[in-house]
Design a protein around this nucleic acid. Structure first.
Length: 165
DNA sequence: GCCAACGTTGGC
DNA sequence: GCCAACGTTGGC
């Protein structure tokens, strides 16, 4: 299993939206590196830190799980969509996405300051200066650390049993 | 709203 | 294939 961090602006689509929807297609990614992660590396069951960007505060707002992979992002073909890509065609799609499933919403957002206060997390992609990727991998040790410190209901568990994964 | 960082585009 | 110009991201 792999771990990911995926960014969304809560004004556009928040963890509350995902709670209501239960599932969502992660459409609109128009960055090749981010696309390649979704296309080549994500597997069903991978866990996702749902990150609110451009928010008050910005940070990790909840947890999701990859439920379908290697889907063609249909918005690239829709000339009415803000994600329309005139260089893509149904016979040669450029952009792919995954579907994610809601798992939980945190009682409070784990802010960037929260994360930076822990030396074990200093290497996290999302904390690096100038990083702009909207989909990025999270190391196992980083995910476990975050899980133990902020997500696990008992804070004493060291596995993911409570999530029924 | 500012602006640093970084990805993409396109002329050459 | 270089690289300047431009657009976007996203914290602040």
């Amino acid at each position: 299993m792999n771990f990911w961090l995926m960014k969304s602006e809560p004004e556009v689509y928040s963890i509350d939206n995902l709670f209501k929807d239960k599932f969502t297609l992660w459409e609109g990614v128009r960055n090749y590196q981010a696309r390649n992660f979704m296309m080549n590396s994500m597997a069903v069951g991978d866990l996702v830190l749902f990150y609110h960007s451009n928010a008050n505060p910005s940070g990790i707002a909840g947890l999701a799980k990859v439920s379908r992979t290697k889907l063609i992002d249909q918005t690239q073909f829709n000339s009415k969509s803000e994600y329309f890509d005139p260089k893509a065609g149904v016979d040669h799609p450029r952009w792919f996405c995954v579907e994610v499933e809601y798992l939980l919403k945190l009682k409070s957002v784990i802010t960037l300051d929260d994360l930076r206060a822990h030396t074990s997390l200093l290497k996290m992609g999302v904390l690096q200066k100038g990083q702009r990727l909207s989909v990025m991998p999270v190391a196992l040790n980083e995910f476990e650390y975050i899980y133990k410190n902020w997500i696990s209901p008992t804070k004493s568990r060291d596995n993911f049993d409570s999530l029924n994964i």
